[in-house]
Design a protein around this nucleic acid. Structure first.
Length: 624
RNA sequence: GGCGUUGUAGCUCAGUUGGUUAGAGCGCCGCCCUGUCACGGCGGAGGUCGAGGGUUCGAGUCCCUUCAACGUCGCCA
């Protein structure tokens, strides 16, 4: 153990009198002229054209190759890696022998061409190297808990606890840079088109609907709370009323809900709002913004218009309001095939107008074993299904979990309905129509995943339009907003509000990318009277309306322009663009699944003094 | 809150039907090495097998409880 203590202590004072003397010696040797020509460069900069130049490099020790008589060190910074060479005759050699991973150094030296045959094509700087004249050690690193130089898999616990080290690694360096480029492109795009970025407050009023609010207790008004914004929705509408016309913001939003791979409690939205606009204008603008960002940040030209699907159409064809259009495998309703079937479960759904039998094709699925299909059935149950019936269209024979009930006519009708070929399998789901579509839609994605059809290098954007204005609350049966209560219905449908609100279509649109919902937008209600009617329909009393939304309704009373806009999840956008499957990999300091910051260890207890100032008292930490 | 996966050296992992002293690669430490670039060679240190309990002559391995991370359902207007 004594040795273990001695060693770091010695290294900590590595910049000793002896090496300082060596530095002086070095400068005397090189002469003043050389020193004056010294230019500072990044570690990704040196090229053959720089040969002979005197340069300064600062960075981390990425790798060290000690040949005893000759030491190579790869020095790394945000721009790249350069090989530096220590010659045994040089005074800095002894110091170079003490360098370890992640030590931070500065070197002065001469760029020189590498000897023939020793160039490294993997490095941008690989044709040259720097012959070190002087070494200065800015700081030493203890041995990192995981390797920094590569991108090998590391436990998420460790990565988040040592986030600054994880961020040093190539993958997150690349991800954060690409995210920046994308956001920069978006800002430039909107700036060019006359939008201005306006910041909206983080401390706002809690409004009842939607996600759970993060609350901030007020010291000056004890017993009351600010809420952190779930989105700047009402503020941006008020900015339209305030006459700003074209607003955008890269806005932080907070929602206190459970996390997922694509959800963090705080996240970033591209928030856009425009006065005097139509839905069509918003779609065209946002589509152009995406194309511009893709070109600038990824160098990829998206030439085709984004496909547009009506909500009902998306549900019927893909069983989802965020269909993944990288592949086909459309769902087909095959209810009528079972109209006179012996198969009671399917016939019941076929006969019931609310029921349906939905089929999905599984390319090459006939090769699956019974056991595989059993496992697939379990997956279907996890997706909320009652199960599934499978038909394997083998070359020799057709097998099925419902072979007893399946006639040859049934099979051939299904086969043609689903455009299936020999070697495919068919998966059938019978349930209430919306439930059957939902399960089949999830299974469609699952099948595509298994067939390798979800290529992360492909980007399939799509618009989903004509959402219903309201959905039926599953518990109470009452109408509840499909989007939010400020969404305008189609202009020709206001008369339905009193008669049949659930039939109303909204001027509401979603942008979808590779099966992820990137964001939603709508044309908003700009008439206080209509807005009051919507609140009333949602069962909010007059008193509550005044208490929660009074400020907003008053604003609407002073001449509100027609307006609409959209909000896009920047984190998700970046995640998909860089090909990650987890949002944490495009966020510098993410929270874990339990919403903890593992690096800072937040949230944490606070001193009683702070609580007293806020008139707060913790009653029971277990929350029971 | 429910369900699932994972947890063995600093890291990534292996560990057979329960059986002697728990292994490998990388990293780390020491010595050697003048053209490497995942440098190489020789030697060495390093383990609460997530934690607790149980079954057993004997548990990394079987059972129960629990903790953590991740995924997912609920939730996310």
């Amino acid at each position: 153990m004594a040795f273990g203590l001695l060693r770091p202590a010695r290294r900590k004072f590595g910049v000793c009198a002896k090496s300082a003397a060596a530095v002086l010696l070095c400068f005397r040797h090189q002469g003043r002229a050389w020193r004056e020509k010294l230019t500072k460069k990044t570690c990704g900069a040196a090229r053959v054209a720089d040969v002979g130049a005197a340069i300064e490099l600062n960075g981390w020790v990425n790798r060290r190759r000690d040949h005893g008589g000759l030491i190579f060190v790869d020095i790394r910074d945000h721009e790249g890696v350069t090989q530096i060479v220590f010659d045994p005759q040089h005074p800095a050699f002894a110091q170079a022998e003490t360098l370890r991973h992640e030590d931070v150094i500065r070197v002065h030296g001469a760029v020189r061409k590498r000897p023939a045959g020793t160039q490294n094509a993997k490095l941008r700087t690989g044709e040259v190297e720097v012959a070190v004249a002087e070494l200065f050690i800015h700081s030493r690193s203890t041995v990192p808990p995981f390797p920094i130089a590569g991108d090998e898999a590391v436990d998420e616990n460790l990565r988040m606890e040592y986030r600054y080290l994880d961020l040093r690694r190539p993958r997150l360096q690349r991800n954060m840079r690409l995210r920046h480029n994308m956001v920069k492109a978006i800002r430039d795009f909107f700036d060019d088109r006359g939008f201005i970025e306006i910041e909206t407050p983080m401390l706002i009023k809690s409004t009842p609907e939607g996600a759970r609010d993060y609350l901030v207790p007020s010291r000056l008004h004890r017993g009351t709370f600010y809420a952190l914004p779930q989105s700047p929705q009402l503020l941006k509408q008020i900015l339209m009323i305030a006459g700003f016309g074209r607003y955008m913001q890269i806005a932080r939003c907070m929602r206190d809900e459970d996390l997922r791979a694509d959800r963090q409690p705080e996240f970033t939205q591209l928030d856009v709002e425009i006065s005097f606009c139509t839905q069509e204008e918003v779609l065209e603008l946002m589509e152009s913004a995406m194309k511009f960002a893709w070109k600038r940040a990824l160098g990829e030209e998206i030439v085709h218009d984004f496909p547009r699907l009506q909500h009902a159409d998306a549900m019927q064809r893909y069983g989802s309001d965020k269909p993944d259009l990288r592949f086909g495998l459309e769902l087909r309703e095959v209810s009528e095939i079972f109209a006179s079937s012996e198969f009671k479960v399917f016939r019941a759904q076929s006969d019931d107008p609310k029921g349906a039998v939905i089929g999905v094709r599984y390319p090459g699925g006939a090769a699956l074993s019974r056991r595989d299909f059993d496992a697939l059935t379990e997956v279907a149950k996890q997706f909320g299904g009652k199960g599934l019936v499978w038909i394997a269209l083998g070359a020799g024979e057709t097998k099925s979990s419902a072979a007893k009930f399946m006639t040859e006519e049934n099979v051939s009708a299904l086969r043609s309905a689903l455009d299936a070929q020999t070697g495919d399998a068919l998966l059938l789901f019978a349930d209430e129509r919306s439930a059957a579509l939902a399960v089949a839609g999830k299974m469609r994605n699952e099948v595509a995943e298994r067939c390798g059809l979800r290529d992360p290098q492909r980007f399939a954007f799509a618009w989903v339009t004509d959402f219903p204005l309201f959905e039926r609350d599953e518990e109470t049966g009452a109408p509840t907003p499909a989007h939010h209560p400020f969404t305008a219905p189609r202009d020709d449908q206001w008369d339905l509000l009193d008669r049949n609100p659930l039939a109303m279509r909204a001027q509401h649109y979603d942008l979808v990318l590779n099966g992820w919902e990137l964001g939603s937008g709508s044309i908003r209600i700009h008439n206080a009277e209509f807005q009051r009617k919507i609140f009333a329909l949602l069962g909010i009393s007059g008193e509550q309306i005044e208490d929660r939304f009074g400020f907003f309704l008053r604003a609407l009373d002073y001449g509100a322009p027609p307006h609409g806009g959209m909000a896009l999840g920047i984190d998700r956008l970046a995640m998909i663009a860089v090909g990650e499957e987890n949002i944490r990999d495009v966020v510098a300091f993410p929270k874990n699944q339990a919403a903890r910051d593992m690096m800072m260890d937040a949230p944490s207890h606070v001193p009683d003094r702070l609580l007293r100032e806020l008139s707060l008292q913790i009653k029971d930490e277990t929350g029971k």
